[in-house]
Computed example of a mutant assay.
Amino acid sequence: MELEMRRMQVFFPASLEIQEELLKAGFKVPYDKESGRKTPIPVVVSSREGRRIRRSRLLKAKDFESDGKFAVVPDERALLELEPTDNGFLILRPKPVEYHLEEMGFVSVPPRVWGTWASFSIPFSAYDELVDFLGDFGNDNRNGFYTASRGSGGRIEVYAYKGRSRKDLGIPVFGYSLGLHGLTLADEYLREKAKENEVPEERLRYLKLGLKKRKETKAGLKVGIVWENGKPVEITLKLSTTEPRVKIQGLYGELAGKSRGELTRTDGWYIVVHASDFIAALETVGRAFGGNSY
């Protein structure tokens, strides 16, 4: 089953592992005060509604318009493939078809201490199709599943988590792989930055700029529904990691944060969960506001 995503954001700046890999190769991450050189780790973004951001934050895009201060990136496409396995797992494969690279804007909390670092959303119109597709893995026993919500204005997000200790994580994740390898814009960006930072371009072929789950990584997927003005509009999936903590030597001292996994070279992106957990979480949030009478 393959669905078109509404939005996709993977915050690779949240990874101290990738930052350390680039620093060791000679890149100034994120910014060198003396030379003024900087190599912000890109956020990979795809939005079906297009995107308007400050021009200074747009690192690389295939197509955009700009008035000098702001950049307007046109509609983009990203797909999400769902593949159930014979042993009860569900493999989610995000596929960025059209995307751009952004620099992280100013935030009061550094991304390295966030829980969530990858976010995917699909239109709520796919809800019934998803439930039908995974119907063989569902059952009426959703004991141990709870919901949490947050909102502002007319927007409310409600997500499910399994077990009271997993409120910050959602449902268990058994494997994942996400990285910058194979993304044409990321390759172009790093070649440009290698020249700017006087890093030999041949070093790029040896870099590991992907992340996969380690055995000790505490990881989860938040499965939720976003409501706007009383109506469900999208299904949201958020990959989170909370442990273990890692430390690296940055340009200006030691940095500590949450591990995002083991460095690797990635061929494709995937997230692995139990299919029964996924459908139970989806149905739990679907019933959070009084059933499926939308």
Rank of each mutant, 00 (worst) to 15 (best):
F70R: 06
G135K: 14
L255P: 03
P84R: 01
L92S: 02
L82F: 12
L101H: 08
V43E: 14
A219N: 13
K162D: 03
R214I: 03
A275D: 07
P13Q: 06
V226Y: 02
I41V: 14
R6F: 04
T264L: 11
A71K: 06
G154E: 12
V233E: 11
D86K: 10
S125W: 09
S276N: 08
A281K: 08
K193L: 15
D86C: 03
G230A: 07
K162H: 06
G179Y: 05
E4M: 11
G290P: 09
L90G: 05
F133A: 09
E196Q: 14
P244G: 08
I91W: 09
K60Y: 13
T266M: 12
A71I: 04
E216V: 15
A280C: 06
I41F: 02
G163F: 10
R7D: 12
T116W: 07
D32H: 14
E243I: 00
E17Q: 15
R7Y: 14
E254L: 08
R166D: 02
R55N: 13
R93V: 06
E49L: 15
D67N: 15
L82I: 15
A288L: 05
I53S: 03
Y127T: 04
S56W: 12
A118C: 07
M104N: 10
R55A: 13
K162F: 08
E2S: 00
E83N: 12
K215P: 04
A160W: 00
F64I: 09
R260A: 06
P200A: 09
L130N: 01
V29D: 04
E262K: 15
E20C: 04
E192C: 02
T116I: 14
P123V: 09
T236Q: 07
D63C: 01
G163M: 11
L251Q: 01
S15L: 03
E81Q: 07
G220W: 02
R48A: 14
V10L: 13
L239H: 01
E196T: 08
Y127I: 06
W114C: 11
I156Y: 11
L211T: 01
L251W: 01
A78G: 08
S121Y: 06
A281R: 05
K258Q: 05
P40E: 14
A281N: 09
R191L: 13
R287I: 01
E17Y: 09
I171C: 02
A194L: 10
K212I: 03
D128P: 10
P84L: 07
E254F: 03
G154P: 01
E21F: 05
D277L: 04
R93T: 04
L58V: 05
R7T: 00
D136R: 15
P40G: 12
E283H: 00
K238P: 00
V45F: 05
F145I: 00
Y294F: 05
R142I: 01
I156C: 03
L178Q: 12
E198Q: 13
D168N: 13
P84K: 00
S259P: 11
L92M: 11
V73L: 14
E17M: 10
E20D: 15
R7A: 01
T217G: 10
A280N: 11
Y206P: 00
W269T: 08
S56P: 05
K258P: 03
A71R: 05
G250C: 07
E243T: 11
K193E: 12
A25E: 02
Y31D: 11
T266H: 12
P172E: 01
L130F: 04
P232V: 03
A25Y: 02
R55C: 08
